[in-house]
Design a protein around this nucleic acid. Structure first.
Lengths: 115, 115
DNA sequence: CTCCCCTGTATCAAAATGGATACCATGTTA
DNA sequence: TAACATGGTATCCATTTTGATACAGGGGAG
């Protein structure tokens, strides 16, 4: 996401969580530290470049911790920071709302506002 | 946002709320119906085209109701649907988190993950 | 007749974001 | 000596999203 001054807190939060693969990455890191390769295998559709990029952005925002072991071949582990974990309830309510939205789309036929 | 099949509920929810001006539009519609022109004056930086576009997307997702009066000159009112109002608590928690993120950026100096 | 009002649309361009593909570093193993 | 393993980077291109600008439409006021 771009690095301008976002004065609206909602936008700021959205900027942190709304990369194309960030929700997936986030989900995979809940409960367990993972190596880069594990994430890659878990998300085969994402290229290394993009995966790296999204992880870096999450790390820059303090949501994810990047742990580099000085070995050969390299070993890099990613995990949620305590700060990142404060996003869990938010992701959870987004998920709930999204789920409802999907169901609405399905057995509502055409979209009909109800308010 | 694009109209592909989004299987992840979080993505689905994000697709609904994360247009560049949607949070602002949403905020302005909380508590009161507004005419197109009012929204435009409230958000002078947005062109008519983009404002129209974002409002249409919100309406297509059932979050906003578009009410057209067949008059000359035209009169179009926008308001939150009941369904759209279910987003209020979510926007609210996003706002809270974003606020914290902003404060963190400020008096944390450099970004330091704390987990 | 002409301009104004209000809510658009059409067209074209710029910016942001995501992706395909190939290359890099370097100890270990065959 | 060459290939392998892991986690990248460099380049170049495609797609998506946003924006600038100009024009539409049709009744009422001047």
């Amino acid at each position: 996401m771009n690095e301008e001054k976002l004065f609206c807190p909602v936008e700021k939060a959205l900027a942190v969580i709304s990369g194309k693969w960030k929700p997936h990455i986030f989900r995979h890191l809940i409960g367990r530290t993972k190596r880069f390769g594990e994430l890659q295998r878990a998300l085969p559709q994402v290229t290394r470049k993009i995966l790296t990029q999204q992880l870096r952005e999450l790390a820059d925002d303090g949501v994810v911790i990047r742990n580099v072991y000085p070995q050969v071949p390299p070993k890099v582990e990613y995990s949620l920071s305590d700060y990142g974990k404060t996003l869990i309830p938010i992701m959870s309510s987004l998920s709930g709302w999204g789920q409802a939205h999907i169901e609405r789309d399905n057995h509502g036929g055409a979209k009909q506002p109800d308010g």
